[in-house]
């Protein structure tokens, strides 16, 4: 049983890695800072650890999909992230890919081999 869990954990990790990026990008048409993004994803039942999200935001910024700006007017300084033009384009195409992937996978699951 614990063996099954172990496999499941690893596979879920891989599965999450890709979907996380799509989820994050989807929420950044409006500027958000890291922790508000954690909250807004959580609200929609999309769980993400801050320790995973923060490095991911930086990486996406480095890749040019996100832009960032420090807001120092509030009580504590916060770094806001927003989709760049490239980011928007990539996101749109990524959503199309995702939908077609969901469709074909759904199709596979309904016609399991043999049954």
């Amino acid at each position: 049983m614990s063996d099954t869990n172990e496999h499941l954990d690893k596979l879920m990790q891989e599965l999450r890695r890709g979907t996380l990026t799509i989820g994050v990008l989807s929420q950044l048409f409006e500027p958000q800072y890291g922790y508000s993004l954690v909250a807004s994803l959580e609200e929609r039942n999309f769980h993400v650890e801050p320790g995973t999200l923060y490095p991911l935001l930086r990486r996406l910024e480095k890749q040019g999909l996100l832009e960032s700006k420090w807001d120092t007017n509030e009580a504590r300084p916060r770094k806001y992230y927003l989709l760049s033009e490239t980011g928007k384009e990539v996101f749109t195409q990524l959503v199309d890919e995702w939908k077609s992937m969901v469709g074909s996978l759904e199709n596979l699951l309904q016609n399991k081999g043999g049954s």
């Binding site: 890291g34 922790y35 801050p50 930086r58 504590r76 300084p77 916060r78 770094k79």
Partner: peptide
């Protein structure tokens, strides 16, 4: 990164 992390930890405490 230090500045961002500090903000994060404060946010988490506040929440």
């Amino acid at each position: 990164i230090a500045k961002e992390l500090r903000g994060l930890i404060e946010d988490m405490l506040e929440e």
